[in-house]
Design a protein around this nucleic acid. Structure first.
Length: 281
DNA sequence: CTCCTGTCCTGCCGGC
DNA sequence: TGCCGGCAGGACAGGA
């Protein structure tokens, strides 16, 4: 679910609300999500102070005043809600982990489908951890360039859509933003990944950065059960050019009146892809 | 290696 | 109104 812009929105909210504050209570309300929670989760969190909240790919990282980092992946349906001290808090259905802080805030990790992940990692072990070792570049960093992308795609026979979902190529894109980025670059999702020219890779790289930046600025997208931690809705979903818009015209276009019948939905690797055959021939 | 499929789990929506 | 099948933003294992 949550892709880079949504996780980044969560990260910012956590960083703002929780940095400098200490965990006074740890309520572990489930055995785990996708995997069991670490056995020492409660003891390693209790009494710890948050130093900062960061992000790598779709992982939110809560960094503490010891050597440990709490790693949270929201999976498909995960969300984090911050509950103000002024309001009485009753655990909601699927609140699996609830942290209380010395400023009165509560942080609840809620995940209906339990596809999410929670684990602890020592700061100096992070790069060696299975979850991070093979991750590709951060798309919003300067070192992610058209040339870097072209190199990662070289020789790949799979569709560019599938390649962009592969976190080893570039980290943080998911099903929604891949469709959006390909549309922005005017590249068909069906193209063989390794067949992109260097000019096309450069175009795609720029498009990825552009759509992610705009989505972050909008507070991410709210679809189904994803909400920002403050309970406000991200509103980037209103800016989707193609995602979920089958049969409609793509932006500034009358393609739904023409031969191609507007935005198409196809299934690649069991997942929906949306694109405009006219602009992404 | 790379690619492809199936699986984990619950909720919701549309169709009948 | 009620039931049921299909679908959902991700990651990973296992087999070809």
């Amino acid at each position: 679910m949550p892709e880079l812009p949504e996780v980044e929105t969560v990260r910012r909210a956590l960083d703002q609300a929780l940095t400098g504050h200490k965990i006074t209570k740890v309520d572990v309300r489930a055995k785990g999500l996708r995997k069991p929670f670490p056995k020492n989760l409660k003891s390693s969190l209790s009494g710890r102070k948050i130093v900062k909240c960061t992000r790598r790919a779709k992982y939110a990282l809560v960094e503490f005043d010891d050597e440990n980092i709490l790693v949270i992946h929201l999976g498909m349906s995960g969300r984090i809600m911050l509950h103000d001290k002024c309001l009485s808090y009753k655990p909601e259905k699927h609140d699996h982990l609830v942290l209380t802080f010395n400023n009165g805030l509560r942080m609840a990790l809620n995940d209906a489908r339990r596809f999410g992940m929670v684990f602890m990692v020592a700061r100096d072990q992070m790069v060696n951890h299975d979850a991070f070792r093979e991750l590709g570049p951060e798309p919003l960093e300067r070192r992610f360039t058209g040339a870097v992308l072209a190199r990662a795609l070289a020789g790949r026979r799979s569709a560019i859509k599938a390649a962009l979902l592969d976190q080893r190529i570039v980290a943080g894109l998911g099903n929604i933003y891949v469709s959006e980025a390909l549309f922005g670059a005017g590249i068909s999702p069906l193209r063989e990944a390794g067949s992109l020219s260097s000019a096309e890779a450069a175009l795609l790289c720029r498009s990825i950065k552009k759509v992610l930046k705009k989505a972050v600025a909008a507070g991410g997208s709210s679809l189904k059960d994803y909400k920002r931690p403050d309970g406000e809705l991200g509103y980037f979903q209103h800016n989707f050019a193609v995602y979920g818009r089958e049969g409609q015209a793509c932006p500034g276009c009358d393609c739904n009146a023409g031969r191609t019948g507007g935005i198409k939905r196809i299934v690649q690797g069991g997942r929906s892809t949306f694109f405009c055959p006219q602009k992404q021939g």
